[in-house]
Amino acid sequence: MSDDMTIQIDSEQYVIRQESDGLQVGRSNAGDVVWLETVDLGLLPDKAREALERGDTTDEALLTALRGVTQAQVERGA
């Protein structure tokens, strides 16, 4: 995956991008993306990584993994 993808997590929209150092998770704001976190791909469950490779942003394994990432951001106050 080389392009940004929009993903709906519960009622919020996020932008994800796979890069050499991991999966970036961000929020779109007035046309710009604010990157919140970069997650090591090795930390994601196999099924979530497979969904990411397919570009399937509706896969429940990927959504569950990203919910954890976004919840950590909320708890840190980001």
Score class of each variant (00 low, 15 high):
G31K: 10
R76I: 04
R17Y: 06
A61V: 03
G22A: 15
D32G: 04
L41V: 03
V74C: 03
S11K: 11
W35L: 09
Q73W: 03
T6G: 09
L41M: 02
V25M: 08
V34M: 05
P45D: 04
L63Q: 15
Q71N: 11
R67N: 09
D59M: 03
V33G: 06
S2F: 03
E37A: 06
E50D: 14
M5E: 02
T58K: 13
I9A: 05
V39H: 00
A61Y: 10
V39N: 01
I9D: 03
Q24G: 14
K47A: 11
E60R: 08
A65S: 12
E60I: 06
V69K: 02
Q24T: 10
G42P: 00
G55V: 11
R67G: 11
D21K: 10
R49L: 02
A48M: 06
N29A: 15
I9F: 02
S20H: 13
K47S: 10
E12N: 09
R76M: 12
E19N: 11
E60V: 08
V69W: 01
G26Y: 06
R17K: 15
G22V: 10
Q71L: 12
L62A: 05
D59P: 14
R49P: 09
M1F: 01
G31S: 14
G22N: 14
N29G: 09
R49H: 04
L62N: 07
S11P: 06
D32C: 06
E12H: 10
E12I: 09
G77Y: 02
V34C: 00
S28C: 14
V39S: 00
A48I: 04
T64L: 08
R17M: 15
R54I: 01
Y14G: 14
R76D: 12
L52P: 08
Q18Y: 00
T64I: 02
A51T: 10
G55K: 06
L62T: 05
A61C: 11
A72I: 04
D32E: 12
R27A: 14
V25A: 14
A51R: 10
G31N: 12
I7A: 04
D10I: 12
G42V: 01
I16Q: 07
G77Q: 03
L63G: 11
S11A: 14
A65C: 04
E37H: 02
E60N: 06
R27Q: 15
